[in-house]
Design a protein around this nucleic acid. Structure first.
Length: 428
RNA sequence: GUGGAUGUAGCUCAGCCCGGUUAGAGCACCUGGUUGUGGCCCAGGUGGCCGGGGGUUCAAAUCCCCUCAUCCACCCCA
């Protein structure tokens, strides 16, 4: 079944996206665009490739993504280029490059496009995958954190998704992290001998990430570890408090997960994730948080910001898993059949005419029996077929057959053209 | 990078354990049953380097080795 002789397969972890699925994707994207518009976000498109340093600096040199999951190559002048593994870095680069800070108000943008990570593919994880997301750059106000969370929860409701939960946490800022890191360091050094190899190396390079470890013995040890959430400075604790009370006020259910540490180094204060039980092992549908130092880190003035990214493929899995019927509404399809010898000019003109009135014409293009043409019309789900018969054409008539009712009538061609919408009414 | 499962017709899969006629089914596709009328039904037909390579054997889809691919899980993340 696999490869025909000489054929070249798709690249590992990438997929062709076409007919039934792409309609669902379009629907998701349209719904998201509309939601972002309602919340005042403007669309932005940034390049799929950026200089490697952009990601190394923003995501963090010692993160798994930068260490081993980027598609990186050299251009002809030996500059290191990387296919973007996430959307925020590019947006922030564009923010600086185009001086968005001089625009009125804060910057609210949303994006949508492919991302690339060189991981081993599995359910809900591809090497080329698609995300949409948004960034609100220029304010520390916790209201933005709340707004962004609310926006996406609204969106999931709009898409009729069930069975998802919001997890929140705070990862502090420079101040509290410094003090906390000292505490955690001490703890990790004390327990170093009992930790797995991975955790030991993380203890040195990126201690906060140890909590991601799924090794049960490590996790048991971490039950007694000091948690950043319990050691926030006054400002961060206040921010986190406010976030919670706003969420309560808005009756958005959430749970605090003190071990929620996300895979990018740039997060500060608020981090959150929405998980779905319908997904399998990769249960994060969407994730995001604050990144108050990133703009500065990439060469701008100190500017606080918050953002989110949603995994489209994962959203689709969840949506499909709960069998939400999605039927794109489409105009009536009309199949034009011919019987006997014909000048195809008549067919072409008729197709044009049908199209001009908003219906979708189909035609066999290949010589086929009338029976075969009607069969095809049926398979294509056409509502009507117009039969151009040699006999009828002598009288300037055509046959209009309703494929749903199974009835047909001879009508005057000009009359049909004039009153096309009356003839092609589809009953719902 | 590590582990497990699976690769047979366009699709879903049987056959493999226990080697032995021309490798099967359902769906899909094409033709006919209607000189110009779909769906349902009936009859017939097209379509397979049995993922690839090597080995064992008189004989391999079937047993052994290697390899590639896909899926799932770990890691990490959307």
């Amino acid at each position: 079944m696999f490869l025909r002789r000489n054929a070249i397969p798709v690249v590992k972890g990438t997929k062709d996206i076409f007919t039934p699925e792409i309609e669902l994707i379009d629907h998701i994207n349209r719904t998201a665009d509309e939601k972002y518009r309602q919340y005042g976000y403007k669309k932005i498109e940034t390049p799929i490739m950026e200089y490697t340093d952009l990601f190394a600096r923003s995501i963090g040199t010692y993160t798994d993504i930068v260490q081993k999951e980027m598609f990186t190559f050299s251009d002809r002048k030996d500059r290191s280029i990387t296919l973007r593994p996430e959307g925020t870095a590019g947006v922030v680069r564009a923010y600086l490059e185009n001086n968005f800070s001089f625009n009125p108000g804060i910057t609210k943008v949303h994006y949508n496009g492919p991302m690339f990570r060189a991981e081993r593919p599995q359910k809900g994880r591809l090497r080329e995958f698609h995300q949409f997301g948004c960034e609100a750059i220029g304010s520390m106000n916790v209201l933005l954190d709340v707004e962004i969370i609310e926006l996406h929860i609204n969106l999931l409701h709009k898409l009729k998704l069930k069975d998802f939960t919001l997890l929140i946490n705070s990862v502090g800022d420079k101040n509290c992290r410094k003090e906390y890191t000292a505490l955690l360091d001490k703890f990790l050094r004390k327990n170093k001998s009992k930790l797995c190899e991975n955790c030991r190396s993380r203890a040195d390079t990126n201690p906060l990430r140890v909590f991601d470890c799924k090794n049960p013995t490590c996790q048991e040890i971490y039950n007694d570890a000091p948690l950043l959430t319990d050691h926030l400075c006054d400002e961060c604790a206040g921010h986190f408090e406010k976030l919670q009370s706003w969420l309560k006020l808005k009756t958005i259910p959430f749970s605090i997960n003190k071990k929620l540490v996300r895979g990018f180094d740039y997060y500060t204060k608020t981090v959150f994730e929405i998980q779905s039980t319908l997904l399998g092992a990769q249960n994060a549908l969407l994730g995001g948080g604050r990144y108050d130092y990133l703009i500065e880190l990439l060469g701008g003035k100190p500017t606080p910001a918050v953002g989110t990214a949603v995994g489209i493929e994962r959203l689709m899995i969840a949506l499909k898993e709960q069998n939400i019927p999605f039927k794109p509404d489409h105009k009536a399809q009309v199949y034009i059949c011919t019987a006997g010898n014909f000048d195809e000019k008549i067919v072409i003109r008729l197709m044009d005419h049908v199209r001009e009135h908003g219906y979708i014409p189909f035609y066999s293009y290949e010589a086929k029996s009338l029976k075969a043409q009607l069969k095809e019309a049926d398979k294509l789900n056409c509502s009507f077929s117009l039969i151009l018969g040699e006999e009828e054409m002598k009288k300037d008539q055509i046959v209009l057959r309703s494929l749903e009712k199974g009835s047909q009538e001879n009508i005057d061609l000009n009359d049909f053209k004039k009153n096309i919408s009356d003839y092609l009414k589809v009953k719902n």
